[in-house]
């Protein structure tokens, strides 16, 4: 045996330094790509600030043009999350804690499959199947709940409303929220779950005492990811929504605000010159909204972090 000299410089192995280089490069690449997108959107979007009303679909300035789109984007995403979040969390709980294992596996697979369906297919489903059926329901809502501003009517017969778009987006956001929540719920330490059960908690009480507090930040992250999907979804909304670019809280009429992504998709093929800049500017706004939503999500999630016990 030879003694290892202790006074030589710290050992560096080639594998370590290669891996470190690769990992750093990957991290830097993401930042560069993100910055590149940001810079492109800003440079190409700025000329839109001085666009004339001809390029702005008759609106006087860019703010008036973008505002209804922001509103529509947020409204559609909010409607989607309002529907998808409780449903997903419930589904995830069924899979992780309620259903017998024999059943929970297949349910999980089916929900994961929903994520693999292309958005065009969701769009077709929204127009051909969901829209007309919801249209009838909207008629009923307008008649019986018309005193609420959301259901003021006149109801759209084809059902191509912001609410229908919200439902389609909810179905699209569902698998990702469910998958993440399911993972987090099933990672709740058995130790804590048994502590609750041994105190005489029912299953629901056990979930409230241990699973929810433990999974809180993960649930928020999951909802934020779902929200991201709903904010950025283009094709399905472009197909389903009959948009006129107004700002209204009436959810069931045929006069609806459009969303930024759908507006770009529908407007880009015929756009040229300054109109392109206008669309890119709205893209920049979407980019920022997504950023802010994610940032808020992190902030909320970080505040409720549960520290694992020793």
């Amino acid at each position: 045996m030879t003694a290892v000299p202790l006074d030589r410089p710290a050992t560096t192995r080639r594998g370590d330094s290669v891996f470190k280089g690769l990992a750093t490069a990957a991290a830097v690449m993401i930042l560069v790509a993100l910055a590149g997108v940001g810079i492109f959107l800003t440079l190409e979007g700025v000329p839109a600030l001085s666009a004339e009303s001809g390029a702005l679909g008759g609106k006087d300035n860019i703010v008036l043009y973008v505002w209804p789109l922001i509103y529509g984007t947020l409204l559609a995403a909010a409607l989607a999350i309002l529907m998808a979040a409780p449903l997903s969390i419930g589904l995830a709980l069924v899979i992780s804690h309620y259903a017998p294992r024999r059943l929970s596996k297949p349910i999980g697979y089916v929900i994961d499959l929903l994520a693999a369906v292309p958005s065009v297919v969701y769009g077709l489903w929204g127009i051909e199947f969901l829209g007309p059926r919801l249209g009838q329901a909207y008629g009923w809502l307008a008649e019986n709940l018309g005193f609420l501003p959301f259901f003021e009517g006149p109801a759209s017969g084809s059902g191509r409303t912001i609410l229908t778009a919200g439902v389609v987006l909810a179905v699209m956001a569902l698998p990702i929220i469910t998958a993440i929540c399911r993972e987090i719920f099933s990672q709740t330490p058995v130790l804590h779950q048994e502590a609750a059960l041994a105190l005489g908690a029912t299953r629901w009480e056990m979930i409230r005492l241990t699973v929810f507090p433990y999974g809180r930040s993960g649930m928020i992250s999951a909802v934020m990811l779902g929200m991201g999907r709903a904010l950025g979804e283009t094709m399905a909304v472009a197909m389903v929504l009959s948009a006129t670019g107004v700002v209204t809280i009436n959810l069931i009429s045929s006069v609806n605000p459009s969303t930024i992504a759908a507006n770009i998709a529908l407007g880009f093929p015929e756009a040229s010159g300054i109109k392109v800049n206008v669309l890119i500017f709205s893209g920049l706004v979407l980019f920022l909204i997504t950023f802010v939503v994610n940032f808020l999500g992190r902030l909320i999630a970080g505040r409720g972090q549960v520290k694992e016990g020793r």
Partner: peptide
Amino acid sequence: PVEVRRQIGMVFQRPNPFPT
């Protein structure tokens, strides 16, 4: 069983206070 566990308490191998 929930009623049984309310009558018969249990302490576990590893301390498990609720973390939140």
